[in-house]
Design a binder for these strands. Structure first.
Lengths: 160, 160
DNA sequence: GCAAATCCTTACTTTTTGGTCAAGATTGAA
DNA sequence: TTCAATCTTGACCAAAAAGTAAGGATTTGC
């Protein structure tokens, strides 16, 4: 269970836009440079996010991308849903092995756990807005743990 | 963020073994049939799980697979770690774009969220044992929500 | 000792995901 | 009006994940 490349980079691009002051925009090369990805890749991601209604763009000289809505109103679960398809509602249609349908229709001991896990993640993400990701690492970390009400039971990772 | 095929099928195969009575075993074709996957695929999964010490096997006629430890002592987070690599400790080494290192070293607003998410999942899985997945769907669902202390905030999925 | 049943291991193929490229369309400014 | 900067789009290529195949090794039972 992990974050896909599209989720990771897409989120990061949006955070760049969330950092902008009102009226400012970023071009593809700027976004690409700030995230260390290729311009082509940034282009594809922004196209997705544009289609999904998270960003708007203007073409031509002085053009660029900007958030379509205030960062305070964009929740991470909406973003993830777009960047990685909505997996919560389709689990039993994937993983059908060599059959047309999952063999465990009717009664399945795995489903509650998998679906429950996805719910937990969805739930956690639905409490965080893009605006919450703006700021330094310490502040974001505090925000996250305060919102989730988590006491660390796992060793914090080494900060690189 | 989703469960990989290997995680899903690997877990399901282990649940089959957890269902066995003491002394019983399952062969690869049996496991494959019960999970609706090919024998070759089941073979690969069981090889992985064997290497990781979750199952043991005996060869020859009357051979088969069985759990190496009691199902009550095998926690899901251990299983997932084997089936999908330990992602929690390596996030910043992936997703470096076209660079050698992630561009956000030092101070990163995304990291706490991604790492925090992985922690939440790890945490949830570390409270559930394989034995908890044995039984009918309703019972497993109750176990899951009781352990996680969750009140559903999301509509339950349609049961297929 | 031999044959059948079974697991073991490596290499290969297919599918999915991730990423790149190039041509086209739009806009702003000289 | 023309050019340069920019986004848009679809086709293409590469890497990773998933799945398959086949030959080898081990054990049991006759």
């Amino acid at each position: 269970m992990k974050i896909s490349a599209q989720e990771e980079y897409g989120l990061r691009c949006l955070v760049q836009l969330a950092n902008l002051k009102d009226g400012e925009t970023l071009t593809l090369p700027q976004i690409a440079e700030r995230e260390g990805i290729s311009t082509a890749n940034a282009g594809k991601l922004m196209w997705l996010l544009n289609k999904a209604g998270f960003v708007n763009s203007t073409r031509g000289t002085k053009g660029g991308y900007f958030l379509a809505r205030p960062a305070q109103e964009i929740f991470l679960n909406e973003i993830i849903k777009v960047l990685d398809e909505d997996v919560l509602s389709s689990h039993c249609e994937s993983y059908t092995g060599i059959l047309d349908k999952c063999i465990h229709t009717g009664d399945c001991g795995i489903r509650p756990v998998i679906v429950g896990l996805h719910e937990i993640v969805e739930n956690a993400l639905s409490r965080i807005t893009l605006a919450g990701l703006v700021g330094n690492e310490e502040a974001v970390d505090a925000m996250f743990h305060q919102i989730q009400g988590i006491h660390r039971t796992i060793q914090p990772q080494k900060i690189v």
